[in-house]
């Protein structure tokens, strides 16, 4: 098999990796905000629940979480497992796992905004929602950009964990090719895919950071 054919097959696998990546972001970016609010809630049971959630998600391997989410419906509810449920379990596991990390990044950003900003907004008559959306959130975005970029880059590479549950994404394809072609080249090509895509993320993140660099505080 020539290099071009292998690259084509890996490219198809990468489209699946990309789907995991995008679906995870779409789900975990907003869910993380909810978790962050729960974690900062003055209603203690809710805050404790959010802490427990974050602790579990960060404290156990994502791979185990995928298996747990995959097998729980079968063992607990007796629901049959299908190829679809593998995919669904993978996406759900990625979303709930990354939401925990994003929640902590959001929290660090939100809590770093000086009290005076909230007080100025309160005295001017902004509602709590207005204060958050107009005053706090835009400043939070700027502050958390480096950490978010870090996490998003990690996510790109973590999509390869879906291999362990049998979702056929790029890393799964690479491993199959390595075995059938008795060559390490597919791994090298897969690495190049991850790296180039992360360069792209780095570039976009850099653009956003420069755009937000019009002020400092």
């Amino acid at each position: 098999m020539d290099t071009l054919t292998m690259t084509g097959m890996l490219g198809e696998g990468f489209l699946v990796s990309l789907q995991i990546f995008l679906l995870t972001l779409v789900g975990s970016l907003p869910l993380g905000m909810l978790v962050a609010f729960a974690r900062m809630s003055s209603f203690r049971p809710l805050a404790l629940l959010a802490r427990l959630y974050i602790s579990l998600m960060r404290g156990t391997p994502l791979m185990l979480q995928m298996f747990a989410i995959y097998f729980v419906p079968y063992y607990v509810f007796g629901i049959g497992l299908t190829t679809d449920s593998k995919w669904q379990a993978t996406i759900v596991a990625f979303i709930v796992n990354y939401a925990a990390y994003f929640a902590e990044i959001y929290r660090s950003g939100i809590q770093s905004i000086p009290r005076g900003q909230h007080e100025a907004a309160e005295v001017l008559g902004y509602s709590r929602t207005q204060t958050f959306c107009r005053i706090v959130l835009p400043q939070v975005v700027k502050r958390i950009m480096p950490s978010m970029t870090n996490e998003v880059i990690t996510l790109v590479k973590d999509t390869s964990l879906a291999f362990s549950i049998g979702v056929i994404e790029m890393f799964t394809v690479a491993k199959q090719l390595v075995a059938s072609q008795v060559s390490m080249l597919p791994f090298a090509i897969a690495a190049a895919f991850y790296w180039v895509f992360n360069l792209l993320i780095d570039f976009v993140a850099g653009r956003i950071e420069r755009k937000l660099g019009y002020y400092h505080d």
């Binding site: 005076g116 100025a120 005295v123 835009p138 400043q139 002020y215």
Partner: peptide
């Protein structure tokens, strides 16, 4: 009422 703070608290963005 309006309030002027010691450290201004303008919105930096």
């Amino acid at each position: 009422f309006g309030l002027v703070f010691q450290n201004y608290n303008l919105f930096p963005h």
